[in-house]
Design a binder for these strands. Structure first.
Lengths: 138, 138
DNA sequence: ATGATATTGAAAATCATTTTCAATTATAAA
DNA sequence: TTTATAATTGAAAATGATTTTCAATATCAT
């Protein structure tokens, strides 16, 4: 889906277009689940067998840098990546099928202000993830 | 502070009281910052020089199991631990001094319900962490 | 005190990630 | 096109964190 736009953005930022990158980008851009580097590696080799795991790590780094993907934190680990949302969005994860959904978090601003007042902190960032069962799994 | 109560709880759950555990528990229970296994190791050796890093890992595991400590997720990594809150509490971290403060999250129930409605998910858990500057640092 | 068994630290093993490096390849310039 | 250059690649080695193995030791119920 977003593959083409991601490749263009890589190029616009001075990175070259290669077979390895095309394969990696395609896998992540099309996935609705968060994928670990090894999962990306395994999936992308169908399309580009010569791929090295190191290149997956390096490409993930660049995609994260460009804000195209974001890291997902889970009880099992914190090395999975998913397509990033536009602006400030948060993640909702299905505990059964792994599907991830993005949602806006504007409504919690009020809540955060009240925490700031109570605690005396100046709050600059917030990080929220919800877990549950998606429509199909529940 | 909470050291004595933690040691009692370890004992009540069938674990033995040892010098290594006493030293480790004391360091974490008294810390206002989240500490990594190595940080705990270094600090606890002042009191118990023969301590091994492996024992730190094993003790952290047990303390987490008993709900006495909780993992802190940060951009830099996700292996630091801090005293857990009672009931369902959330973390507020100072980006400068690392101090962590717990706060209640009851107020966001309403917000979570609205996300559930919008997305069709049944939401069972939520993770929230706020970052900013504490009173002393701002 | 004694014995069963949990706990220990050291060393080795494992696993994920990063670095190094020489060969290859994409791209801009001729 | 061809060529030159600099980015990119994969393999292998290095690193770093965590886990496992194991024999020695220490705790605690008896």
């Amino acid at each position: 889906m977003a593959t083409k736009s991601w490749l263009t953005q890589l190029q616009d930022n001075g990175y070259r277009l290669t077979g390895a990158r095309r394969a990696i980008v395609e896998i992540i851009a099309d996935s609705r689940r968060a994928l670990t580097p090894v999962e990306v590696y395994d999936a992308a080799r169908d399309q580009y067998p010569a791929l090295g795991l190191v290149t997956v790590y390096r490409t993930l780094e660049k995609l994260e840098e460009l804000g195209l993907i974001q890291r997902v934190h889970q009880p099992k680990g914190c090395q999975a990546f998913i397509t990033a949302g536009k602006g400030h969005q948060h993640l909702l994860l299905c505990n059964k099928c792994g599907r991830t959904t993005l949602f806006d978090g504007d409504d919690i601003d009020q809540f955060i202000k009240s925490v700031a007042k109570k605690t005396g902190y100046r709050i600059t960032e917030h990080w929220l993830q919800l877990f549950g069962l998606c429509e199909d799994c529940k």
